[in-house]
């Protein structure tokens, strides 16, 4: 092995090339078009003129309106990520460690909601929390309340909707890494005198971090890039940066502005990913020495 490392190793690049070529052709080049577009001039609705001007960028950099949207987006994404991690780790651990014979069923159940359209799933929260929803109907029937409670169309319903949609991503990522851990490690730690909790904290938790990290990254990024959930479950104050992009491209037909906003979001999320890959990259390195 040592010999092979010394000279340039072609193999990883052979393996990587199909994916790299596909992404370059279908993402990088189109995004380059978008970048060029961000300097264009929007003359009228849906009419753009090729140009090289910084109008769109100056507007983004100087208008407080966009900062508010960025702040809102990051705040909400953080909340959703944290809650999803807290809610998701334990079930992932359970699935990985259970002696339940039909383990695959638990996993399948997690993915099942995906097979009903995302929109139906999101809308169904209205049937639970709304005026005509399950909770209000039940409480009215039991006589606990006289008038239906207002629970819909606020920040919390948006968070609930997001977590519901993205939690499976979190659980599956954590599960995959927990399942890859050598099962003799935790018992081994305990035979060395560690308590169950210590064994978990010292052995299992660190080893599952790549999965947890991947799950968090995914949920964060997916939340930050969405726009449909706030539209369906949110009130007037609930929106994300993605809604600005959608408005610019679809509603205002101002593609240059939409392109500039997209690139902004891309760069911001790119920073998050770089930070993540630095962190997790270090961890993986550390693990190799252990």
């Amino acid at each position: 092995m040592a010999l092979e490392v010394a000279k340039f190793d072609k193999r990883p690049w052979v393996l990587l090339s199909p994916a790299l070529v596909t992404i370059t052709a279908l993402v990088v080049i189109p995004m380059a078009f978008m970048l060029a577009y961000s300097f264009y001039l929007n003359v009228d609705l849906a009419v753009d003129k090729p140009a090289f001007q910084f109008g769109n960028w100056i507007e983004i950099a100087t208008d407080k309106y966009y900062y508010v949207a960025i702040w809102k987006t990051f705040r909400l994404s953080m909340i959703v990520t944290l809650l999803a991690a807290i809610l998701g780790y334990v079930p992932a651990y359970f699935i990985a460690m259970t002696r339940f014979r039909h383990k695959w069923m638990l996993l399948l159940l997690l993915i099942m909601p995906f097979w009903i359209s995302f929109i139906i799933r999101t809308l169904s929260w209205i049937h639970i929390l709304g005026h005509d929803g399950a909770i209000n109907s039940l409480l009215l029937y039991l006589g606990v309340i006289r008038h239906p409670m207002d629970m819909m169309y606020n920040q919390y319903t948006v968070i609930v909707g997001f977590i519901h949609v993205f939690l499976p991503y979190m659980i599956l990522n954590i599960y995959v890494s927990l399942d890859g851990i050598d099962r003799n490690l935790e018992p081994a730690a305990r035979t060395l005198g560690a308590t169950g909790w210590q064994a978990f904290r010292e052995v299992t938790l660190p080893l599952s971090l790549p999965g947890l990290g991947a799950g968090c990254l995914l949920v964060f990024v997916l939340t930050a890039g969405s726009y449909v959930t706030p539209l369906i479950l949110g009130g007037p104050n609930d929106f994300l940066f993605g809604n600005l992009i959608y408005d610019a491209i679809i509603t205002e037909l101002n593609w240059p502005m939409g392109a500039a906003l997209s690139i902004t979001l891309l760069v911001l999320l790119g920073v998050v990913v770089i930070v993540y890959s630095r962190l997790m990259g270090l961890r993986q390195l550390a693990k190799a020495f252990a």
Binding site: M97, T98, R99, F100, K103, R183, E186, P187, T191, G196
Partner: peptide, 15 residues
Amino acid sequence: STTRLERLREAMGNG
């Protein structure tokens, strides 16, 4: 720990 170990082993086999 014994129960736990047993459970783990079983989970591995069956799962």
